[in-house]
Design a protein around this nucleic acid. Structure first.
Lengths: 207, 207
DNA sequence: GTCTAAATTGAACATCGTTCATAGTAAAGG
DNA sequence: CCTTTACTATGAACGATGTTCAATTTAGAC
């Protein structure tokens, strides 16, 4: 193992993040305990506050990692140049569902973790979320060539949020959520309806 | 005030629920404290556990009240017989946005409050959520007369969840959420696209 | 080898939700 | 009216949690 200070510090941070990931996977973000994390990481309770500001900041680092993996999964799912806009949208939505299902507790932690009132997340954390919107813009631009960049960015957020809502209610097990067995098909139907409707709303068909 | 035991018990329960509502409105569901609730309700800390099983159950009673008010708002927003399916959908979505904005912390409490792992909500609580789906079925049936009741119920959940997702990310102030100033317009655009797309997917136009 | 600054430790602290022994009080019986 | 009984109210006490801190250990510089 590394002997100098910097290496040991980074090693502890990595062990703590790995422990948080594992604990969230096992017990969910709501069941995360500082003592369980430090015990699994093999350090004292107080060491957590030397490596990170607090438990919230540690969770944000893990969330950033999850977000990066999610972004890679979305980009990897994008089809080649020959694909239609709907095919691109379906590929993105399908990859989103797959990632959320395969990493359910970590994905839920992305959207259930809240900072105490008053504190707001650092910029590097906010900026990591941009990828979720950016991937939606290109296919949306094909559907709505009449919209400028600002309107496209806004509509991309709306489109993402719509798909996200269906996945979230389903994976949270909310009563109004769609059963998991129907999730993929229903998201597919939603994306299909949204893309057809968006295309219809374009200027060449009149509003 | 009531003197017999039943009346006093109901009065305490009502005072506790009112206090929880007020506390959630002021500090959000995450800032809810049993001591602040009992202090505002004018009773001892332990009295909470005589009137309700625990704080979670008390929150569920308040959530049920919020849900009932939301259901009434949705039903009241439905237009008359002459309305088109899209007009019904737009009216419902608009009322949903309006209620969520006007009762933001209480509405957020509906979807952020979670029971500890293992425990699941009682049936009377689950059943209260049905109204959110039921109101969507009639207009959806007009758009998709080809779907049977089961498929309609499923698609109604998906449609609700899509709108809900846009409102939730916006009102939670998430980074990927739509700005509050654009929320109404974006939800309108989403509903428009979904209804046009759903109509297109109907059998008379081929799939 | 000595010194300084950083890291490590786990006990202590403040703050939660929840429980419990105690005290008080309302309804029932004679 | 008094006694009894069952329910209610109380707030101190408990266990669990995130965070802090003084004491200790250790790594790096001179």
């Amino acid at each position: 193992m590394g002997n100098n200070r910097e290496e040991r510090r980074e090693d502890l941070r990595a062990r703590l993040m790995a422990a948080v990931e594992d604990q969230i996977m096992q017990h969910g973000i709501a069941g995360l305990k500082a003592r369980a994390v430090t015990a699994q990481a093999g350090c004292a309770l107080g060491a957590l506050y030397n490596a990170f500001d607090d438990l919230d900041m540690l969770v944000m680092h893990v969330n950033a990692r999850t977000l990066a993996r999610l972004g890679e999964a979305l980009k990897a799912a994008l089809p080649g140049q020959g694909a239609t806009a709907e095919e691109m949208m379906q590929a993105l939505a399908g990859a989103y569902v797959d990632f959320a299902c395969a990493n359910r507790p970590l994905w839920i932690a992305l959207f259930e973790h809240r900072l105490p009132a008053g504190r707001d997340a650092p910029d590097w954390y906010r900026d990591n979320h941009a990828v979720l919107i950016e991937v939606v813009v290109p296919p949306l631009r094909r559907l709505r060539p009449d919209l400028d960049d600002q309107a496209l960015a806004l509509r991309a957020r709306t489109t993402f949020a719509a798909v996200h809502g269906v996945v979230l209610l389903a994976l949270q097990g909310r009563f109004v959520g769609v059963p998991l067995s129907d999730l993929r098909a229903e998201v597919g139907a939603l994306v299909s309806a949204m893309t057809r409707g968006a295309h219809l709303a374009g200027p060449e068909h009149g509003v």
